[in-house]
């Protein structure tokens, strides 16, 4: 009973705020106030109700495309996770490697995705390849940098203590460095999924035949504004869902915190 009360207290305020904002939007759209203020035709400024309607009518089309985008996000994020943790571990163990490649890791983040995405499409075509590359590229940085910070966050006294208790490098890694890095890894992963969604849309905009980003481009060209908004809503939902899933995994794995 108390837990239910706490959950409600946690979720109620944001929920109420969202409902309030949607209500205001609905009102502003229905009365034509919003379109008038923007100097636009009414159909260009859909109300939440209209968006919901389109979402329902075109549910199979939207779901089809959402699935494509979700697969891209999961695969791209997965690649970044494996590569990022691998790279962070390698950099942690080799001072030389760290000094040599840290600038490259940082540089990887300064590449404007919007610029590189079209190039990747030219190289790899309209398939899933370029999307995975774009998503993995932007997910790579937060995962790698956070994991590396985590591996180096260990109390040096704990390492010394373990050394006097027969631990070698790999045991020190297993027993203190990796567990200490885990919370950092999760923080990085949360940032990464949020940007992964943006990466997927950019990747699809650069060239694609399917996916929510692709659908948005089409709808934009045909002034199907309500469905455009519907796609945005679904994308946000995907981001929130993945973020929540990682949060749950974090809580399950980091019981000691």
């Amino acid at each position: 009973m108390k837990a239910v009360g706490n959950t409600a207290r946690l979720w109620l305020p944001p929920l109420l705020l969202i409902i309030l904002l949607l209500g205001l939007w609905q009102l502003a759209a229905d009365t034509g106030f919003l379109a008038g203020a923007l100097g636009l035709e009414d159909f260009l400024v859909p109300s939440p109700g209209q968006i919901g309607e389109v979402l329902w009518q075109d549910r199979s089309l939207i779901a089809e495309n959402a699935e494509v985008t979700l697969v891209e996000i999961l695969a791209g994020f997965g690649i970044a996770l494996v590569v990022g943790v691998g790279v962070a571990t390698a950099l942690h163990f080799s001072e030389l490697l760290r000094r040599a490649s840290y600038p490259v890791v940082v540089a990887s983040q300064t590449i404007p995705i919007i610029v590189i995405a079209p190039i990747l499409v030219v190289w790899f075509g309209y398939g899933i390849g370029p999307k995975l590359a774009v998503i993995a590229l932007i997910c790579f940085f937060p995962i790698t940098v956070n994991t590396l910070d985590g591996l180096r966050s260990v109390d040096p006294d704990s390492v010394k203590m373990l050394r006097t208790l027969y631990a070698g490098k790999s045991q020190i890694f297993r027993r203190v460095e990796a567990p200490a890095a885990l919370p950092y890894l999760f923080s990085g992963a949360k940032i990464a999924v949020a940007v992964a969604v943006i990466g997927a849309v950019f990747g699809e905009w650069a060239g694609s035949e399917r996916g929510l980003g692709h659908l948005m481009l089409q709808d934009n060209a045909q002034l199907m504004t309500a469905r455009l908004f519907a796609s945005v809503a679904v994308l946000s939902l995907i981001a929130i869902l993945l973020f929540t899933l990682i949060g749950l995994a974090e809580r399950a794995l980091l019981r000691w915190r």
């Binding site: 109390d155 006294d157 704990s158 010394k160 203590m161 006097t164 027993r175 203190v176 567990p179």
Partner: peptide, 9 residues
């Protein structure tokens, strides 16, 4: 070695 902080993991 038993460090000054207990360093329990």
């Amino acid at each position: 070695w038993m460090p000054q902080k207990d360093c329990l993991l």
